[in-house]
Computed example of a mutant assay.
Amino acid sequence: MGSSRSPVCYADAARWYCIIFLVLLVLLGSFTEDNSLIKKINPASDHTCDEIYVVGEGETLNTISEKCGDPFIVEENPHIHDPDDVFPGLVIKITPSSPHI
């Protein structure tokens, strides 16, 4: 008759596939939305925001300030009365600070 593999062999293969999948998942998780790894490799990639910025889901003024290099978002946007009341779709003006050399 033909050769058949034992259930133990299939279990070992399945375990290795799970391990490889988990390792890939962890590696992909290291590339977060803020692309920290990319910023460490190429710091010049910071401050890539347009002058007019539309707030996205889950963003705060603090995260936008860090992302765009503008520490004075509230002062430059008088229509923002409460810095904690930021919502997706809100349009704000961005004035990035000059890069430090």
Rank of each mutant, 00 (worst) to 15 (best):
M1F: 11
M1Y: 03
M1T: 00
G2W: 11
G2P: 05
S3V: 15
S4W: 04
R5V: 03
R5A: 07
R5L: 07
S6K: 04
S6G: 06
P7W: 05
V8F: 02
C9N: 03
Y10L: 03
A13Y: 13
A13H: 11
R15D: 04
R15N: 06
C18K: 15
C18H: 13
C18F: 07
C18V: 14
I20H: 07
F21I: 14
V23I: 15
L24P: 04
L25Y: 12
L25Q: 10
L25D: 10
L25K: 11
V26G: 09
V26L: 15
L28G: 14
G29W: 09
S30T: 06
F31C: 15
F31R: 13
F31V: 13
T32H: 14
T32M: 05
E33W: 13
E33V: 03
D34T: 11
D34F: 13
N35G: 06
S36F: 08
S36G: 13
L37H: 05
L37A: 10
L37E: 08
I38P: 01
I38G: 13
I41N: 02
I41D: 11
N42Y: 15
P43M: 10
A44S: 12
A44E: 07
S45T: 14
S45G: 08
D46H: 14
H47D: 14
H47S: 12
T48V: 10
T48P: 01
T48Y: 09
C49F: 02
C49G: 00
C49M: 00
D50E: 15
I52D: 06
I52T: 11
I52Q: 10
V54L: 06
V55Q: 02
G56M: 02
G56P: 06
G56W: 04
G58V: 00
E59L: 00
E59K: 06
E59Q: 15
L61Y: 00
T63Q: 01
I64G: 01
I64V: 15
K67N: 04
C68R: 01
C68I: 08
G69C: 09
P71G: 04
F72G: 07
F72N: 12
F72L: 03
I73T: 02
V74S: 00
E76C: 02
E76A: 12
N77L: 00
P78N: 08
P78W: 05
H79E: 15
H79T: 07
H79Q: 14
D82H: 03
D82G: 11
P83D: 03
D84A: 08
D84Q: 12
D85H: 09
V86W: 11
V86I: 15
F87D: 05
P88R: 07
P88N: 12
G89E: 00
V91N: 01
V91R: 11
I92A: 03
I92D: 03
K93C: 08
P96N: 06
S97T: 09
S98T: 13
S98A: 11
S98I: 04
P99A: 07
P99T: 11
